[in-house]
Design a protein around this nucleic acid. Structure first.
Length: 506
RNA sequence: GCCCCCAUCGUCUAGCGGCCUAGGACAUCGCCCUUUCAAGGCGGAGAUCACGGGUUCGAAUCCCGUUGGGGGUACCA
């Protein structure tokens, strides 16, 4: 072993990796596993790598790699080694490492740990069907495992294509160590001679994964629990190659909101980057994901990126599947929106406001670009009401449009009638018109005096004014709203309300 | 079918033999604050710790079984 072998050093720094196959988008489930890996690396002062497992060329989707990388960037999870940034153990695309796999496949064959299999797909299928008919577990019948050297030579001479299979032990037990649970014991008699190298010369996951994790000095393999059944195959391969296996941690699934099924592309999941479009903050996603299967203690709920790095520990990762809960994610998002400094808030929300109306932006009648200072004031009024950044346009449109559209009837508050409402609005208008300044506190003081004078409750008059000024029954605090809206607009809208209501009963 | 994993409030979870008449968070309900809605504060309801056996003076915590759920069973990952 070389001096740089992680197993011979005393460093505790973990080298972890996320190794997706570029066959589609990655969702919360995949990134949650990646986040755990990243946190482990950061917590221990190690490295986090991205490796693309593109050995199934038929299923490879163009653009998938870029999307994965973009997701990491958005979340703020730096990749130390990988496709875009490179690194000393590249290339980081498995299709570019095929010669490497060939070498080790030959080595395994030479050592008697693997063998060439010339069986046709048709024969394999027939064997499986027969096994199923006899209700035996379907697996390779090891036909080619015991071919004589001359038989093999003959097949090779004929130019028969072949795969390389693992010669799995047929008796005894294989123990898989998992950092999250007790040792998992497999009867070797139930193992299959899995394909290591396909007939096109590319490796399967079972071979590529073992070789790359070893060559890239990976110390901890965090992967989905769906890999547990094939883990003994990997353990055997490490042993056959004379390598020390990394520490495995099979993390639990993330379940879809409905039903007990795993969250997946076709069942409940959306691409991670879709959350960005929908107005989620990376901090919220990070915090939420971290708590899906991991916990710090019995109290902590909101944890920053730095706190997560500081606190993360494999020992506190659970084993039971966790269900994806949108409500909880929304709460985290609202929480992190509330934590934003005014300038950050504006910067985050502005793009959502300026999108075209059809994509959820402000009405197209509103001129872009928006006035940043004005928008900033508006957003501060709505900040604590937003669940997502995308909520902003609909919430604040009345601050930007010219004409309001509402039912005059809504101007009339509970226990009020049209006549008294009209009177209240006219008196309010006069009161406001007499003001020299236009500050919320001043308006509130004068209008409260008016409320007393009219013998009304605050809600009876303020509801009317709210609808008059915003067109809605729900809005930020009335006086701040009017102050932000400005004198001219506010007064004009109250005048319009008076007109509308005067014409209403008839 | 066979192999494997899992099992605490609706949800995410704390709990690693006595501190548990099971704690926190989301959601939910009520009250307070209050010009509406939020936010915030306070409080309530909500889990016979899946079930059945053990081990132990003592079990949500350890062991076995049952049931339920999930995963795997490809020249996909």
């Amino acid at each position: 072993m070389s001096a740089s072998d992680p197993h011979t050093t005393t460093t505790r720094a973990a080298r972890t990796r996320f190794a997706p196959s570029p066959t589609g988008f990655q969702h919360i489930g995949g990134y949650r596993t990646a986040l755990f890996s990243w946190l482990l690396a950061r917590h221990t002062g190690g490295q986090f790598l991205l490796r693309i497992e593109d050995t199934d060329t038929a299923r490879t989707v163009p653009g998938a790699v870029d999307a994965v990388i973009e997701g990491f960037k958005w979340l703020g999870l730096e990749i130390d080694e990988g496709p875009e940034v490179g690194g000393p153990f590249g290339p980081y695309f498995q299709t570019q490492r095929r010669d490497l796999y060939l070498i080790y496949a030959e080595q395994l064959i030479a050592g008697g740990h693997a063998y060439r299999c010339f069986c046709t797909p048709e024969r394999l299928q027939r064997v499986r069907e027969e096994q199923r008919a006899r209700s035996e577990p379907p697996r390779y019948d090891r036909h080619c495992r015991y071919l004589t050297p001359s038989e093999i030579a003959a097949q090779l001479d004929e130019g028969q294509s072949y795969v390389v299979r693992l010669a799995a032990p047929t008796s005894g037990k294989t123990v898989v160590k998992d950092a999250l649970r007790t040792e998992i014991v497999f009867e070797n008699a139930s193992l299959d001679d899995a394909v290591l190298l396909k007939s096109n010369g590319l490796p399967t996951y079972h071979l590529a994964n073992v070789i790359d994790d070893h060559l890239m000095l990976i110390t901890h393999v965090l992967r989905a629990e769906e890999w547990i059944p094939s883990a003994p195959l990997h353990a055997i391969t490490y042993q056959a190659l004379g390598w020390e296996p990394p520490i495995f941690a099979h993390v639990p699934d993330v379940l879809a909101p409905q039903g007990g099924k795993k969250l997946s592309k076709r069942f409940g999941a959306i691409p991670l980057l879709e959350y960005r479009e929908r107005g989620y903050l990376p901090a919220a996603i990070l915090n939420y994901m971290a708590l899906l299967g991991w916990s710090y203690d019995d109290k902590s709920n909101t944890l920053s990126r730095e706190q997560l790095i500081e606190a993360f520990d494999l020992d506190r990762v659970g084993v039971a599947p966790a269900r994806y809960d949108e409500e909880r994610l929304l709460w985290f998002n609202g929480y992190y929106i509330r934590q934003l400094a005014p300038e950050e808030l504006t910067g985050h929300v502005l793009p959502f406001m300026e999108r075209v109306e059809a994509e959820g932006g402000l009405p197209d009648s509103v001129a872009r670009p928006l006035d940043r200072a004005y928008t900033a004031r508006v957003l501060q009024l709505e900040q604590e009401r937003m669940k997502t950044l995308a909520d902003a346009p609909a919430m604040t449109s009345f601050f930007f449009v010219n004409a309001l559209s509402y039912e005059p009837r809504t101007l009339i508050a509970k226990h009020m009638d049209a006549e008294r409402t009209l009177d209240g609005l006219r008196r309010s208008h006069a009161t406001l018109a007499a003001l020299t300044g236009w500050e919320a506190a001043e308006m509130e003081a004068r209008l409260r005096e008016l409320v007393a004078e009219l013998g009304l409750k605050p809600v009876q008059l303020f509801t009317s004014l709210r609808v008059a000024v915003t067109g809605r029954t729900v809005s930020p605090p009335l006086f701040e709203t009017m102050e932000t809206l400005g004198r001219a607009t506010s007064m004009a809208r109250i005048e319009q309300a008076i007109e509308a209501l005067a014409a209403y009963p008839g």
